[in-house]
Design a protein around this nucleic acid. Structure first.
Length: 501
DNA sequence: CGCATTTGACCGGCGC
DNA sequence: GCGCCGGTCAAATGCG
């Protein structure tokens, strides 16, 4: 038999906070001469307050003297004054807190902006070194130069988006891009807005830019020089959101893991493909606009095509940083260049020549037929098997080895990735060489299995493909990244677990 | 029971 | 104007 508790327990809301979660229990103990005990999370404080409780009921005993009354009134006034003081202090502290929060947010933004700038500077320096050492190979060097050019540009693009001085912009518009030094370009308001504006001005070119099927005219109305900067910025951002990055990779999994958390919100049968297309949205933060589509290739169902769209509006975990700037990079690549057409882009230095091997399908393509400009990274094509075969031993530790890859691809700051990859691409010009290079650096001493199955396993590994895609995209996208510090498409442990099995 | 996924409905853009 | 198509929504369903 349990002892019966005669105490009545009454729930009371905490009126100080209005928080139901901080409900106190007021226990009336029948065994204690009807005394009321007040239990609190802050017993000491409450006790002190209880002693000083001002009921404002003016409950005075009849035998009080006039002097006692006056002294009590005085005390009450003092307490009221103290209370007012405390309240004022509280309000002041709250205001200060808000200010500090704002400052912190600004500091964060500035930090990211500076980081982007640093990245661009380091990239530029790196490219100069590569340029001098690879003077003979202008085909490969120039893309890197342009990348550098673009990187500073984009770092600024996102920093200054919406603030670009219009007069400055118009001035820049007068000069051709060839005449501009990278420094000038990066500092003279060469924003996406400007790029689009320039394209708009360049009406002599029939197809100024791949905007078939209504893009951008419908989604983003034409710019004119009299519109406000803010409108332009919004339109530009809308365009950036529409630009896409598509990654083709062999994978048995339903989705490659890229560091982010995704929630499936739809699935459709797309025309011309027996495999359904799945629609996912990023759930790492409420309101994150990033979407991705996953669909198997109609011709080869072992190939998984993942298309990213949008920019994350939240910081990403370290594991997700591998996909740094994927979509924003692509968007910037597509939008910041003054390419008259998709062919222009492909024939230009925007896409590293090394990515387009002679006699083999290009690893990077730009779709001009898609509704939105789409950059496609094809990780399924493997014109040179050697490096991949070298790359990886058949090992039960492979997944763990992947986790050792991050120091090169996943966990390092973007500029390291870009530097590494940039160096390598400029010197080797072959993505497979890149794989081998990474592998040799990372896994030196490991046995080498020279089998096609190994290569397939590597390319099929979601982590690897995602990381590789991110790295490549970082380069292709001129290492563009915005100052949110979180415009990355990446992968997450959850997805890794859920979707790779 | 809460959350994620599934799936049919719905909507807007585009071509005819 | 109509139908097709891609994309999204939201109720139903499944699962842990």
């Amino acid at each position: 038999m349990e002892p019966v508790d005669h105490r009545r327990v009454v729930n009371e809301m905490d009126f100080f906070t209005g928080d139901q979660s901080s409900i106190r229990h007021v226990k009336a103990d029948d065994d204690d001469d009807h005394h009321v005990k007040i239990e609190s999370e802050h017993p000491g404080w409450l006790q002190d307050q209880a002693e000083d409780v001002n009921t404002c009921l003016n409950l005075l005993t009849t035998n009080s003297t006039a002097s006692e009354k006056s002294s009590r009134n005085l005390k009450e006034k003092q307490r009221v004054n103290q209370l007012a003081d405390v309240r004022a202090e509280l309000e002041r502290i709250n205001a200060e807190n808000q200010r500090l929060k704002l400052s912190l947010s600004q500091v964060n933004n500035n930090y990211y902006a500076l980081q982007m700038h640093l990245v661009s500077l380091m990239q530029r320096q790196q490219n100069r070194i590569a340029e001098s050492s690879e003077a003979n190979n202008t085909e490969i060097d120039r893309p890197m130069e342009d990348k550098t050019h673009g990187e500073g540009t984009v770092a600024r693009q996102f920093m200054d988006l919406g603030q670009a001085a219009k007069a400055e912009k118009d001035e820049v518009l007068e000069s051709s891009s060839e005449d501009r030094s990278p420094e000038l370009s990066a500092s003279a308001g060469n924003t996406i807005v400007e790029s689009m504006d320039r394209r708009e001005k360049n009406s002599t070119t029939p197809e100024c830019f791949p905007h078939p099927q209504g893009w951008p005219p419908k989604k983003a109305p034409k710019f004119n020089n009299t519109s406000k900067d803010t409108e332009q910025a919004q339109q530009t951002m809308a365009m950036i959101r529409r630009a896409r990055v598509s990654v083709r990779a062999r994978s048995e999994a339903s989705m490659i893991s890229d560091g982010c958390q995704w929630r499936k919100y739809g699935q459709k049968m797309a025309k011309g493909n027996p495999c359904p297309r799945a629609y996912y949205r990023c759930t790492m933060a409420t309101g994150c606009p990033v979407r991705k589509q996953v669909q198997r290739c109609a011709e080869d169902t072992t190939i998984l095509v993942t298309t990213y769209e949008g920019n994350h509006n939240h910081p990403l975990p370290p594991a997700a940083m591998a996909m740094a700037s994927t979509t924003s990079a692509a968007a910037s690549t597509l939008l910041s260049g003054s390419m008259p057409s998709a062919d222009g882009i492909m024939n230009s230095n925007l896409v590293p020549k090394g990515m387009m091997l002679p006699g083999s399908p290009s690893l990077v393509t730009l779709s001009a037929s898609a509704p939105f400009p789409t950059l496609t990274l094809d990780l399924t094509r493997n014109p040179n098997q050697r490096p991949l075969n070298q790359f990886h031993p058949i090992s039960p530790h492979w997944p763990h080895s992947l986790s050792s890859l991050p120091p090169h691809l996943l966990g390092q700051p973007i500029y390291n990735q870009s530097k590494l990859l940039g160096n390598f691409l400029s010197s080797q010009g072959n993505i497979n060489e890149l794989c081998g290079h990474l592998a040799q650096n990372q896994m030196r001493g490991h046995p080498v299995a020279d089998t096609a199955a190994t290569a397939a396993a590597i390319t099929a590994d979601p982590n690897f493909t995602a990381a590789l895609a991110a790295a490549i995209t970082s380069i292709i996208g001129n290492s563009h990244r915005d100052n949110s510090g979180g415009n990355n498409n990446s992968t997450t442990s959850r997805n890794t677990g859920d979707n790779n099995t």
